[in-house]
């Protein structure tokens, strides 16, 4: 029994470590989508962030500057999407897809000299005292700084969106930009701001990957995690707490998948051997996203929670319907 609880602690702890990059990206996307802008470029921004983090921390020998550079890079990239979807009123789905392809291509091209170059990384830093708490300590407080920053960001994001005046404006712009505009909220500025904030968080998510969870740069190292973050935002119904739950759950799934590969399969029936092969296990996180989205859609219908009403729609004063 002790063995089992030990395993649970390991899986949960690793789930939090692995879920952190996804969580940053999901939080960023929540901010962006709450303002009514759908940015499907998360994967691309994470990749650029991951590379920028590596390049900057190699150049300055400081992972902190690396993380800042990642945020700047993600923010800069999201500015392209903001310009196309807000100013030029282009199609947000198409622009987001372009951003993902662009980020993947650019990072692979510019990152070529950095593949597998040893780079600095955030060291594991147990929190004094808290780490000694049984069960809780090993799960939550024996990680690197990126994990703790995410812990702090979570309540802050929730508070900002739901309990502050700028957060109220953010929600208004996403739900009914015409009404927000009439009340004197600058719709264009708000959308630009939160698209860039979202991009910066996605970049940070990339850095949490390349400077902490899986240190170093490899082409396409996010392997769809950015898309998982986009899916999680829907599952989370645009709520940071639920996004955290989802992100850590996915972290745990991807970790369990890793552990199960080590199990001996001798003596198991053929079908189990196939299901436990590395390839099938690697499908699991992606399949889980689909399953979770199916449940989320059922629940969304039942509880009538939905996307921000103006999500994906460009706003222009003269075409406003309100």
């Amino acid at each position: 029994m002790a063995d089992f609880s030990f395993l649970v602690i390991i899986v949960l702890s690793a789930g939090i470590a692995a879920g952190t990059p996804i969580l940053y990206a999901a939080l960023g996307e929540i901010f962006t989508e709450r303002s009514g802008i759908l940015n499907l470029g998360v994967e691309g921004m994470m990749l650029i962030g991951a590379l920028a983090g590596i390049v900057a921390s190699l150049a300055t020998d400081s992972v902190w500057i690396g993380a800042l550079a990642a945020m700047a890079a993600g923010g800069l990239l999201s500015l392209i999407h903001a310009f196309i979807s807000i100013t030029l009123r282009g199609d947000q789905v198409v622009s987001g897809l372009a951003l993902t392809i662009f980020g993947a291509g650019l990072s692979a091209f510019l990152g070529f000299p950095y593949v597998n170059v040893p780079a600095p990384k955030f060291a594991t830093l147990p929190v004094p005292l808290l780490e000694r708490i049984p069960i809780i300590g090993p799960i939550f407080f024996q990680h690197d700084v990126t994990v703790y920053v995410a812990f702090m960001l979570l309540p802050a994001a929730w508070f900002w969106i739901n309990r502050t005046r700028p957060g109220l404006h953010l929600r208004a712009v996403g739900e009914n930009p015409a009404a927000a505009d009439a009340l004197g909220v600058n719709v264009v500025l708000t959308r630009y701001t939160y698209t860039v904030v979202g991009g910066a968080l996605c970049g940070l998510g990339g850095a949490a990957l390349s400077l902490a969870y899986t240190p170093g740069w490899i082409e396409n190292m996010t392997t769809g995690w950015g898309w998982i973050a986009v899916g999680l935002v829907i599952f989370a119904a645009w709520n940071p707490w639920r996004a955290a739950f989802g992100a850590y759950l996915f972290g745990a799934i991807s970790r369990v998948v890793f552990d199960v590969q080590m199990l001996p399969t001798a003596g198991l029936p053929q079908i189990m051997k196939i299901l436990l092969s590395p390839e099938f296990l690697r499908m699991m996180p992606y399949a889980a996203v689909i399953v979770i989205l199916i449940f989320a859609s059922r629940e969304a219908v039942r509880q009538r929670v939905g996307a921000p009403a103006a999500l994906g729609q460009p706003y222009t004063r003269e075409e406003a319907e309100a």
């Binding site: 499907l40 998982i228 992606y286 689909i290």
Partner: peptide, 9 residues
């Protein structure tokens, strides 16, 4: 969008 992409992997 999400499901078709996940199925790629």
């Amino acid at each position: 969008i999400i499901t078709s992409l996940m199925l790629n992997y």
